[in-house]
Design a protein around this nucleic acid. Structure first.
Length: 482
RNA sequence: GGGGCCGUAGGGUAGCUUGGUUUAUCCUUCCGGCUUUGGGAGCCGGCGACGGGAGUUCGAAUCUCUCCGGCCCCA
């Protein structure tokens, strides 16, 4: 059992789990840069793999771009340069004598300005389009405050950068992005989210508009997961990404990007699925999917261990680990693997050998069953699916319970205190709604997350903005955020 | 970016107010040995620390400044 309870003190619980599950070591002395231990590294690699599969399925090709961006590239798109300016680390000198570089090199805070100089060389014809590329890249941002897996100065990231012939194709990509988010986050990882089109005042620097998936943290705050940006022709004009169309005319490409961050998925995995015993991992992510604990009794160690190996062999299609450390008792091993979130534990002792069975304990419900060895593989297969379903169902129930509506400002004020998403009528998610959003920010410390894009929500005629009382044009969701 | 708290072995702590009998407390981890294992076992022995720098002082874990790092609340 952890010292902090998830429900009582979420922040402390979160820090404790990171330490005790050996996800990260916080003792490295550079702020915002995290040392990842093997357990979290393995989990993140799995999430990268899942995403790479999605990218390949949807016709993206993988590339690798340099970390450093010359200043002259970085400033080409004015809004982007302004939006990211304060967050860029600059490399300005080299060597023991600190020789000054001729041009400052920015460490990518995101890779638009690295990639698009090359895109302008590569894209010449309508035949080159659609042009869909992605890369696995760490990005670096000088963030004022940092938290492990939530906000870092080094951020583990995938970014897709696509170019299309038409606006319509580009906007369709935003929906495909949302589908990828759903496939990975919801289907594979059991993490439900809401898809939003962000208000204009909250869009990515350089974009026309931004869409994003928000998960809900157990402390009631929204956490932005993958985001997509529709760039229109902002970057293609700034970087000269032009092609000849079928009528030999020069045209600028229409662009989108999509950025899922497995690093931040870790934050949601921990907080959404974890409990007071520690992390809970679905099979797809668990470095060890099954841990076998031999129950040694004096003089019977060899037989028990042999039986464990036999069972491990039956389950060889899974990542099985036999924890045969003799210097620890069974009980302490249970705790170790519970904190780390191993989805299934199997106990094998002299009793089980006699009965040709194994004791199977699932991490999500703590239910314990003795299973005959001949049925074991089938049983685990079932558990693999059931555990993911349980996690997803639990999370979904929690999300649904935390979406509420408010018709008046005082109702909003009241409900937002408990956290979650509050659905309201709102004047506008264009810039002229910003004043109302600022009021929400100042008085309620909450944000307008935007209107849903994964679900059509029409506004009823005659509806009024919950803040200013003027005619409402959007149904928006308001939440406190990370 | 604003505010608050904090930094003593691998982890958690006592000591700090009032500078000096401190050879720096206790628990845990770790190492060696014995013993034990169905929900955090026990005994014996051992290793291991005052975040960095500067200052005040006869003397600094203790006071001052500064840097680095961490946590919490808010933006």
């Amino acid at each position: 059992m952890l010292e902090n309870k998830k429900g009582d003190n979420f922040s402390e619980w979160y820090s404790e789990i990171i330490k005790k599950a050996e996800l990260a070591d916080l003792r490295y002395n550079v702020q915002g840069f995290l040392v990842h231990r093997w357990w979290s590294t393995f989990i993140m690699k799995k999430m990268f793999e899942m995403y790479k599969k999605e990218f390949e399925r949807t016709g993206h090709k993988e590339v690798m771009f340099p970390l450093l961006i010359p200043k002259s590239n970085f400033v080409k798109e004015a809004d982007h340069a302004e939006g990211f300016g304060a967050q860029v680390f600059w490399v300005t000198e080299a060597g023991t004598r600190h020789k000054k570089l001729e041009e400052p090199l920015g460490i990518r805070p995101t890779s638009e300005t690295a990639m698009y100089t090359m895109y302008s060389y590569w894209i010449r014809s309508w035949r080159d389009l659609p042009f869909k590329r992605y890369q696995e890249a760490n990005v670096y941002r000088y963030e004022p405050t940092t938290r492990p897996f939530l906000r870092g100065r080094e951020f583990f990231f995938l970014e897709a950068h696509n170019v299309f012939e038409t606006k319509e194709e580009a906007e369709a990509q935003i929906l495909e992005d949302m589908e990828m988010s759903k496939n990975v986050l919801y289907k594979e990882l059991g993490m439900p989210f809401l898809g939003f089109k962000r208000p204009q005042w909250d869009k990515f620097a350089g974009s026309v508009y931004t869409c994003a998936a928000d998960t809900l943290s157990p402390d009631g705050r929204a956490l932005q997961q993958p985001s997509s940006h529709f760039y229109g022709q902002n970057f293609s004009k700034a970087f000269g990404i032009k092609f000849k169309d079928e009528k030999k005319k020069d045209k600028y490409g229409w662009q989108t990007t999509y950025g899922p961050a497995p690093w931040r998925f870790m934050a949601s995995i921990i907080s959404i699925h974890g409990d007071n015993k520690g992390l809970i991992l679905p099979f797809s992510l668990a470095p060890y999917q099954i841990v076998i604990i031999p129950i040694f009794f004096k003089g019977k160690e060899k037989g028990v261990l042999k039986e464990c190996k036999k069972v491990a062999k039956l389950l060889k299609k899974y990542r099985v680990h036999i924890d045969d450390r003799p210097e620890y008792t069974a009980g302490s091993k249970y705790h170790d693997w519970e904190i780390k979130g191993v989805p299934v534990r199997i106990e094998i002792g002299p009793q089980d050998i006699k009965k040709k069975q194994a004791v199977v304990v699932r991490r999500d419900t703590s239910k314990k069953h003795a299973i005959k060895q001949k049925d074991l593989l089938k049983h685990i297969k079932k558990l693999e699916k059931e555990i993911l379903d349980t996690l997803r169902t639990r999370a979904e129930k929690n999300l649904k319970q935390n979406i509420r509506s408010a018709n008046t400002y005082s109702e909003l004020k009241n409900k937002i205190r408990k956290g979650g998403f509050i659905k309201v009528n709102f004047c506008s998610i264009d810039l002229n709604g910003e004043k109302c959003a600022e009021k929400i920010k100042e008085e309620l410390q909450a944000e307008v997350r935007g209107e849903r894009i994964d679900k059509r929500e029409k506004i009823k005629p005659g509806s009024k903005c919950v803040i200013c009382g003027k005619k409402a044009s959007h149904v928006v969701y308001i939440a406190k955020q990370y």
